[in-house]
């Protein structure tokens, strides 16, 4: 286990504020009762929050829309300009489910062909995780092995655990360590008692989950569930909003569009979050290779529990955060679907 520090809770804001000259410091904050990540430049950090923002922090690496290039064509000449964002950023308060989500995105965008846009944003961002003291209402991260405490020490630079009056801080990287060293006077070395307290919180939190999912049984069921009527039944109310994909911490699909200016001499290439639940996602000029909503829901579940693991050394593609259920206007419930699969013989 890496080295553990203790930070007095009242000192967290000071610690973060001192980073502001060098970084865009991003923190969970309440706005009209809604928790979301915001820049500390115009938002007060929420230190004692439960749950997680509805939109995960993946957008700091893979934004909802991102300008990739601008093209200018004039008199037989063409110029291409790429837009790579290298802003220095610190994000504090990332829940373990979302740390896991970022690792999943890493395995897509940073493997084989490296995505320069994602890479630049990721390189320039310090991740400060925050373990969960209580489960989310619809969450089942403990079943997915992604939470409520972060399990992969490569997934964060610093990891905070709320002990009541203090944070236990685990160092996950050199970059994280350097930030602590800069403000060494704020931190103390953690005692065994404090570490034990953290373990106790983790244990209690794990016991408090309302939902559990048997990952292995789900995976096994999927080998036989291709033609199961459940896909049609569970997708029948879907109105194709795309929300389940948009707010999913591991969803990375995108669409690329060129937007021409009025005179069509210049254009901008933009990529946008896309959704495999939309009919047009697989639409080609003459035909659509996934015609029904049942096939699309099946794709979403197979992707998370079968395809992503197959592509990425068995790592599950679902963090168990429960957001897709929360955001669904049609009340499609992932734990319900996984429950059906888990009960199949």
């Amino acid at each position: 286990m890496s080295e553990m520090k203790i930070l007095d809770k009242t000192k967290l804001v000071e610690f973060l504020e001192k980073l502001m000259p060098d970084f865009e410091v991003t923190v969970p904050s309440y706005n009209n009762g809604n928790l979301s990540f915001s820049s500390m430049a115009h938002a007060r950090p929420e230190i004692d929050f439960a749950g997680r923002p509805l939109v995960p922090p993946k957008e700091y690496f893979f934004p909802q829309q991102e300008e990739m290039f601008t093209f200018a064509t004039k008199e037989g000449k063409a110029t291409i300009k790429a837009h790579i964002n290298k802003d220095k950023r610190v994000i504090w308060g990332i829940r373990p489910c979302d740390l896991y989500g970022i690792k999943t995105l890493d395995s897509v965008f940073l493997s084989r062909y490296v995505d320069s846009y994602y890479h630049a944003r990721r390189e320039n961002t310090i991740l400060m995780g925050l373990n969960c003291n209580e489960p989310c209402e619809a969450g089942f991260c403990s079943s997915m092995g992604t939470g409520p405490f972060a399990t992969n020490s490569n997934a964060f630079d610093l990891l905070f655990t709320n002990l009541g009056n203090q944070f236990l801080v685990e160092i996950g990287s050199k970059a994280g360590e350097e930030l602590i060293e800069r403000r060494a006077n704020l931190f103390a070395t953690a005692s065994d008692e404090e570490k034990n307290k953290s373990n106790e919180i983790e244990k209690q939190c794990k016991q408090a989950f309302l939902y559990s999912v048997d990952q292995d049984r789900v995976k096994a069921a999927l080998t036989k569930a291709w033609d199961d009527p459940l896909w049609a039944e569970e997708s029948k109310n879907c109105i194709l909003c795309g929300g389940c994909n948009f707010i999913c911490p591991t969803c990375y699909c995108f669409n690329i569009e060129d937007i021409a200016d009025e005179h069509e001499q210049n254009s901008t290439r933009v990529r946008y979050w896309d959704s495999c639940q939309l009919g047009g996602y697989t639409q080609m000029a003459a035909e659509n290779t996934r015609k029904t909503q049942a096939e699309r829901l099946r794709q979403r579940i197979y992707d998370k529990f079968s395809y992503v693991p197959a592509r990425h050394n068995g790592a599950i593609g679902c963090t168990g955060c429960g957001r897709c259920t929360e955001v669904c206007p049609s009340e499609i419930n992932i734990t319900h679907i996984l429950g059906i699969l888990g009960r199949q013989k």
Binding site: F109, F254, R271
Partner: peptide, 24 residues
């Protein structure tokens, strides 16, 4: 196989057939 594609590099997600990407 022909599938809708955006990136050609196994990132955009569109062209999967099962766990495989048509582009890769």
């Amino acid at each position: 196989m022909e599938r809708r594609m955006e990136c050609g590099l196994g990132k955009c997600g569109h062209c999967n057939i099962g766990e495989k990407y048509v582009c890769l």
